[in-house]
């Protein structure tokens, strides 16, 4: 596997006064270049701590994180790592630095010391990629949550990273904003080949991912394609995760003796599964 990020036996400990608390425990993980990975976990499962280690914002207490072969512990290549692996956070308001959309998107490339014409090109491309080009001269303050979050994504995209790590980017958005962000991420992944690592606790956002990793108590407890992960409703519920209503419905039907396959996720797939089951004994 061609890995963009390798996480090797990583442990991360927080110290709070006397007590030491391990948020991530001896975790290993490879992220394949060009893949779309979703990391699921409830609040406090260690998923955010892991996310911040992927671009060197947090340094592991023990173990190593390699980005394209570069160890994030190496201080001389810190900027290089952050340029390759961009990071988007939960609250879009706290990531936007400038009062004009395009000036904000320019912030990253400006820090890289690029030529003005190159910055312009990247800003325009990034804004087009998230479908916010028409808003380039607007004030972020007036935009909706989903639009602001897309500006934050554009701000990272303008650094032309290879990988985007997003830490619960939809947690503060309404359903419309959430849908906007998820479809934007899939477009960046399929059209531009950007590796996506999406951290969330909304399971339905993992529907079209290549791979789903479930975290609990600082460890990986499941790692598979979405259909296999979602069919295990019991485990997901036991680690405090949200289960889409389709999965819940199929699971209840199965418990009531219906011969349904609980792998189905979308409304259409679930309906097809139920129709099959209803007709099976006719």
């Amino acid at each position: 596997m061609d890995s963009i990020i390798s996480v090797r036996n990583v442990t991360y400990e927080y110290r709070e006064e006397e007590t030491v608390y391990a948020a991530v425990k001896d975790l290993s993980l490879e992220i394949e270049r060009g893949s779309f990975t979703v990391i699921l976990g409830h609040n406090g499962s260690g998923k955010s701590t892991l996310a911040k280690m992927l671009n060197g914002l947090n340094k592991p207490t023990s173990g190593d994180v390699l980005v394209d072969g570069i160890n994030t512990k190496d201080e001389s290549t810190e900027i290089e790592v952050k340029r390759k692996v961009g990071m988007v956070f939960q609250n879009p308001d706290n990531q936007i630095i400038a009062s004009i959309v395009e000036e904000d998107v320019a912030f990253g490339p400006e820090n890289l010391g690029l030529e003005p014409s190159e910055i312009r090109r990247r800003v325009d491309n990034a804004l087009k990629a998230v479908d916010m080009y028409d808003f380039r001269e607007s004030t972020p303050h007036r935009l909706s949550g989903g639009q602001k979050q897309r500006i934050a994504i554009a701000g990272i995209m303008a650094m032309e990273p290879e990988c985007l790590v997003l830490d619960e980017p939809t947690a503060m958005l309404d359903p419309k904003g959430r849908a906007e962000i998820i479809s934007t991420l899939h477009r960046l992944n399929s059209d531009k080949g950007i590796t996506i690592v999406l951290i969330t606790h909304y399971m339905e956002e993992a529907e079209n991912a290549d791979r789903v990793i479930v975290m609990n108590d600082g460890k990986i407890i499941a790692d598979n394609v979405p259909k296999v992960i979602f069919s295990d409703v019991k485990t997901l519920k036991s680690v405090g995760l949200d289960v889409p209503q389709t999965a819940e419905l199929l699971y209840s039907l199965k418990e009531n003796g219906f011969p349904v396959d609980t792998h189905a996720l979308s409304v259409k797939e679930a309906a097809a599964e139920i129709i099959k089951a209803m007709r099976s004994e006719e």
């Binding site: 961009g86 990071m87 706290n94 630095i97 395009e102 320019a106 820090n111 010391g113 910055i119």
Partner: peptide, 20 residues
């Protein structure tokens, strides 16, 4: 949070910074 976001966008105090 803003400081972290700025760090993720390669800000290091304006050294070598250009303007669009």
């Amino acid at each position: 949070e803003l400081a972290e976001a700025m760090e993720c966008r390669c800000y290091n105090g304006g050294e070598g910074r250009t303007r669009m």
